[in-house]
Design a binder for these strands. Structure first.
Length: 231
DNA sequence: ACCCAGGTGGCCC
DNA sequence: GGGCCACATGGG
């Protein structure tokens, strides 16, 4: 939790997830896969203008009328299909995302995971930010943080991706308060820190010294008396 | 002209 | 059950 505090002091409250409704979280979670949020915002804006952030309308939509709206978010054909598939599932089985989320965590999670286009990170994002479920979201930045501190050496490879995901998730969940606000802010703080300092080339651990001084990961390492060297 | 982004699923051996 | 690869746009 010292890590959380250090990140919080540095970046402050993030107010995640940036969305007006739970269903918008679902849409955003799918669109943001392997894509920058600024591109996702454009697609969300397009969908919102046409009213497609409303479940019934989206689930009755045709792929061809969605393609162009989703295009700025990249992978637009694939994401359109996934969006429609998920919307149709929720609409026909529950009528609303809130109704679907109003069930035990594990049941919703397994159901989400069975849908095409929803893997562990997307499922947990929906549970944590659209619902009120205590599920910590793990992403690429979380792995990098674990590796670089080093907190939980986990590697960067794609092998055993699911095992690795749940290993990291369990580690965080076992070591943090069971509070929704902390779950939400912590992941958001890791993303913010990652966007600035944890690119694939570890800027914070190399190049100029002023960046090293300003990098919270360096502070964290200093706090834990871990010697950080070039890698 | 590269490289990368808040992943996921499918196919091949 | 791994190890690759397609998916695609926009910004640094």
């Amino acid at each position: 939790m010292q890590i959380y505090n250090l990140l919080f002091e540095r970046f402050g409250k993030r107010y995640w997830w940036p969305a007006e409704t739970p269903f918008e979280v679902v849409v955003g979670a799918i669109l943001t896969q392997q894509t920058t949020w600024t591109n996702v915002e454009k697609a969300i804006r397009n969908l919102k203008e046409k009213g497609f952030l409303e479940l019934e309308l989206l689930s009755n939509a045709n792929e061809n009328e969605i393609y162009e709206l989703v295009r700025p978010a990249g992978y637009y054909r694939q994401k359109t299909k996934r969006l429609l598939g998920v919307a149709r599932y929720i609409y026909t089985n529950y009528g609303s995302i809130e109704h679907m989320l109003n069930q035990p965590t594990d049941k919703v999670r397994n159901e989400l995971l069975s849908l095409n286009g929803i893997g562990p990170e997307t499922a947990d994002s929906i549970l944590c930010y659209a619902g009120n479920h205590l599920k910590f979201v793990v992403d690429a930045y979380t792995y990098r943080l674990c590796n670089r501190i080093p907190l939980l050496q986990i590697g960067d490879g794609k092998e055993h991706a699911w095992d690795r995901y749940h290993k990291v998730q369990r580690y965080f969940e076992e070591n943090m308060p069971k509070e929704l606000e902390i779950y939400r802010e912590y992941h958001a703080l890791i993303v913010e820190c990652g966007k600035r300092f944890c690119k694939t080339k570890p800027k914070c651990l190399s190049e100029n010294n002023s960046e090293i001084e300003r990098c919270p990961i360096s502070e964290i390492c200093r706090y834990y008396d871990i010697f950080v060297h070039e890698r």
